[in-house]
Amino acid sequence: MKTAQALPPRLLDAGESGLVVEFGDAIDEQVNREVIALADALDALPLAGIREVVPTYRSLLVLFDPLVLSRETLRARVLALWPPRADGRQSHGTRHGIWHVPVAYGGEHGVDLDHVARLHGLSTREVVDLHSGAEYRVYMIGFAPGFAYLGGLNEAIHTSRRTDPRLKTPPRSVSIGGRQAAVSPPLEIPSGWHLLGQTPVRSYDPARAERPFLFAAGDTIRFTPIPHAEYAALCRAAEAGEIVAEWEPA
């Protein structure tokens, strides 16, 4: 793993309308902070011609209209922004914050909890404590709408992916794969990760017009175990448009 602080980013062409700003080649918190800080800084600029920016683990994809914004101007602006200020400001006027996400662990909500516990010689209670006791960083949203890739999983429950991925997993699953964790959107996505629980929180809901997405890259997530008996009522509230996760400023 390289130490990214000292190195300016690599700028790579992606066709005539994409520029990849690469800060590193590994999953690393500091690298990811730089990616998101640059995304936020570009969002804060009025720079005509940028269509959108896509922050991921270790690089930022900038999509732009080359007939409005030249590659040279864009490259110069990106390099002038480096190193970016990591002040946590987000484009939507909000700041990156901490989400408290309720989870119904095990049973029908997390069919792999027992398996993961057995694999590590732990009780299911201990797995739940380890999983809900950690603080996670949203490295990126990708693969499916609102699917959050999280770093920060306790080493004691790092678990290789399933050898046979499932073609469908329950909506809003809370899962782990390798040294990562994830929260699924309310969609039945394919996944080879281990399902520990299910949240009533809808990370993506196009019907929630004022807030179709909850989590953004750079946010922090903490999981709160809830009794299975409370799950259904929270789901109903979430379907009615309530955001059933608590948010606090970082």
Binding site: A14, G15, V20, D25, A26, I27, T56, L61, G142
Partner: peptide
């Protein structure tokens, strides 16, 4: 394998 990053139309 690379660490996943953004994909555009035409990648």
């Amino acid at each position: 394998n690379i660490v996943s990053d953004g994909i555009m139309n035409g990648s």
